[in-house]
Design a protein around this nucleic acid. Sequence first.
DNA 1: CATCAGGGCCCTG
DNA 2: CAGGGCCCTGAT
Length: 323
Amino acid sequence: MKSLKLVKQEEFFIKPTSPFNFDATFHKPAHFPSALEIWKSGKFWQGIRIGEKLFGLKIEDKGDIDRPLIKINVYCNQKINKNTLVLIQKEIIWRYDLNFQSKEFDELCKKDKRFFPVFQKWRGMRNSCAYELYGLLVVGIVLQNATVRRTVQMMDALLKNYGVELVFDRQVIYWCWQPKDMEQVSEEELRALKIGYRAKFIKKLSQDFVEGKVDEFVLRKMPKEDIKKELTKLYGVGPETARILIAEAFHKYDEFDHIAPWQQKIYSMLFYNEPLVDAKIIKEDIIKRYGKYSMLAVSYIWEDIFWRRKNEHIEWLEKEIRL
DNA sequence: CATCAGGGCCCTG
DNA sequence: CAGGGCCCTGAT
């Protein structure tokens, strides 16, 4: 495995739109734990790739909900040019949706008596994704048809073999390989990492990226339905994986078409306090209530229960999570 | 020990 | 468009 020692080169600040909640945006307790990022209250470490070059980022909360400000330290093994620095800044703004205009959504929250306390508690949370599109697709693939533990095993095995270790600011994290790195790797070699039939998905997916069949930056400018169409064309990407990407990487907050069976059970308890409500009913109720902010609103309620899980035992949830 | 479903997707009929 | 098969793992 490749390992890079990076030293601090630059720092800059970004002012997110207000209100902005740092911890709720940078840490998603509902996500599986990965070696790709480290979060501590008010601090976050991750890698980022611009072109061929890898950087380490330390992102810190330097403001508050109503006067948000974040500081970014950039680590690298050589000097960074201005242009690259601008690209890094743009990427951070995109990936954490730092320019989101929340006025409409805030109004919507106020009208929802039942969940207003939840929206209030996490006010300023954004749907976000630390990774580039390819990286999130790989994550999406190892999530498929697997329990959390197995997902973690598969992701760790992949990172250990093909990822890059980044050492900076007394932290060690990993970052994803590039699509072209998979060209020399055979399906059999991937299967030896016990990722099963997903080996084929990763091979084909990487090939599609190498051939330029997907361009993250083009997709970002497309309407939701087109993004979905393009993503679903990729071998191994179906409705659920596309939904994750659209909500988290493309910040389309109205996306609420697909409910996986395990999510249906959790939604049923959260919204109806019943073990199993028809998925169609859940969908209709949510869309009626939250409209074009359906996915964002549900994220607040969804993440809230996982934040709570950190400190309290929630019996019905433990049953559904299945480690 | 064997069997089975799981935080989907592809392919077939 | 419904249903079988897929990799592996832990639960039963």
